[in-house]
């Protein structure tokens, strides 16, 4: 895929909405287009976290497992959302499994590449961190609500 094409896809993804053109060009250097068939594992718990995914189409399940309970889906991520932040901080390993629920098309940004770009250009690094923090905060809020088990008998 041509670099300009990736750049324009990045620009239309909500996560990079409004990002400066020069930053987009830098990020595009780390990007490749990927697709996963329904049921395909995107990454496994414990593996090296190599990529940061921008979901363009389809639904991804974040799974874990517990001895007596088998597999558990803790969250799903859909179109326009992002997948994975373990690439950002040491030890750069996934803490959960990710699985394509249906056909998933995404942009994968190489984690090491992104880290190097951010170290080289702190303006880009800060911009990226602000955007990621917003997503992480939102997910944390949602997780807290989920913890409340609000539909149970005891609210």
């Amino acid at each position: 895929m041509k670099a300009e094409r990736i750049e324009s896809i990045l620009a239309t993804h909500p996560f990079f909405e409004g990002l400066a053109a020069e930053h987009l060009a830098v990020v595009a250097d780390c990007a490749t287009s990927v697709r996963f068939a329904a049921g395909e594992k995107i990454f496994h718990e414990g593996e090296e976290a190599q990529s940061f995914y921008l979901i363009r189409h389809g639904r991804v399940a974040i799974d874990t497992h517990a001895p007596q309970r088998g597999g558990l889906t803790v969250q799903t991520i859909g179109e326009g959302e992002i997948l994975g932040w373990s690439w950002m901080t040491p030890p750069y390993r996934w803490r959960f499994d990710a699985r394509a629920v249906d056909l998933v098309r995404a942009i994968a940004l190489d984690g090491r590449c992104l880290r190097e770009k951010c170290e080289a250009d702190h303006d880009l690094g800060y911009e990226l961190l602000k955007r990621l923090t917003l997503v992480i905060v939102r997910r944390l809020e949602a997780t807290r609500l989920q913890l409340l088990d609000i539909y149970g008998h005891q609210v």
């Binding site: 974040i62 088998g70 558990l72 889906t73 969250q75 799903t76 629920v101």
Partner: peptide
């Protein structure tokens, strides 16, 4: 469970 093909989250 992973058999569920819909969304998970609040």
């Amino acid at each position: 469970a992973p058999e569920w093909r819909g969304s998970v989250g609040v």
